[in-house]
């Protein structure tokens, strides 16, 4: 629902769109593919940006990863086993073009919806993991996101496992109407049961985490970690600016702001994330599984 989040950050820095259209369709990566940082506007080669796991070398903004990229950076190699991989959402309110839009997105991204959940190990410690992917309808939460996350928490509760969630979202999914809103209550209920069982839940807030996801499971971690310069908030920036009729400071709602206001425990850089998660898991007694 936050249309101002739909920023095209990858751009062909050519100055002449027409050349692009005439360019022969090759399967090599064009040399002119550049990445412009949405925080500092610094421009680097896409290749270079990918090599540093999508972290801006100029301002340290931690860019958006795909769910697959996140899983490979976090979980032990080959350890991730996906849950509920085939679940698909319906169109409960008959929202115009929702089905077509999803079909296109499934093709483009290889995802079935905006979250991937599963079981994995992080430096040997077993976890239930969830990763949201902002390429899919801004990782908004509808029935599938709500159901998959709820099942992930229920499974973790049953198997006495910790949960690590990487959040990113534009909020509740408008296209599924009131059913999306109810996923906020449903997921929060599952978090409550997991918590009552004395189990650890770590939230990692990534860019951007907003709306109904901030107002439900993303804010309910025992430990809340944020990535540098990730946008995290309830209301969209433009909505607030329209209300107060003034421009907001650039750092408003960024991870650093969040920590200053007391809503995040720590800001952790991507290159240290796996190690920090592993230590936190071990501090809570989730030790590497012994292999026989």
């Amino acid at each position: 629902m936050l249309e101002d989040l739909f920023k095209v950050v990858t751009t062909r820095f050519n100055g002449n769109e027409k050349t692009d259209k005439k360019a022969p369709a090759g399967n090599h990566i064009p040399k002119d593919l550049l990445y412009k940082c949405p925080r500092c506007r610094n421009v680097i080669f896409e290749e270079e940006y990918l090599a540093v796991n999508k972290v801006c070398p100029n301002c340290n903004y931690h860019g958006r990863l795909t769910a697959q990229e996140r899983i490979s950076l976090t979980a032990d190699k080959g350890s991730f086993v996906e849950f509920d991989a085939d679940m698909l959402s319906c169109n409960p309110i008959g929202f115009p073009d929702y089905d077509i839009k999803q079909m296109k997105l499934r093709e483009q991204t290889g995802l079935k919806d905006a979250v991937i959940t599963g079981e994995a190990t992080i430096k040997g410690s077993p976890v239930v993991m969830g990763v949201m992917d902002s390429r899919y309808l801004m990782a908004s939460m509808g029935s599938v996101v709500g159901e998959k996350l709820t099942r992930a928490f229920e499974r973790a509760t049953k198997e006495k496992l910790p949960v690590v969630l990487f959040t990113a979202s534009g909020g509740a999914r408008m296209q599924e109407g009131i059913i999306s809103l109810m996923q906020m209550a449903k997921t929060s209920g599952a978090v409550a049961k997991h918590s009552e069982a004395g189990l650890l839940y770590i939230t990692v807030l990534t860019d951007p985490t907003t709306g109904g996801v901030t107002a439900s499971f993303a804010s309910l971690g025992d430990i809340i970690i944020a990535e540098p310069k990730a946008l995290v908030g309830f209301a969209g920036r433009r909505v607030i600016e329209d209300t107060i009729k003034q421009r907001l400071p650039d750092d408003f709602q960024l991870a650093e702001f969040l920590m200053e206001k007391g809503f995040a425990d720590m800001i952790v850089e991507r290159k240290k994330m796996r190690s920090v998660l592993s230590h936190l898991l071990k501090l809570h007694g989730y030790m590497p599984e012994k292999k026989d």
Binding site: V191, L220, G233, F234, I240, I244, K261, F263
Partner: peptide
């Protein structure tokens, strides 16, 4: 939706109510 509401954790406040 406003500055104070964000500074004081509108999202966290709602989330906490859902859970509790």
């Amino acid at each position: 939706c406003g500055i104070g509401a964000e500074e004081r954790g509108q999202g966290e406040a709602i989330a906490e109510n859902l859970l509790e």
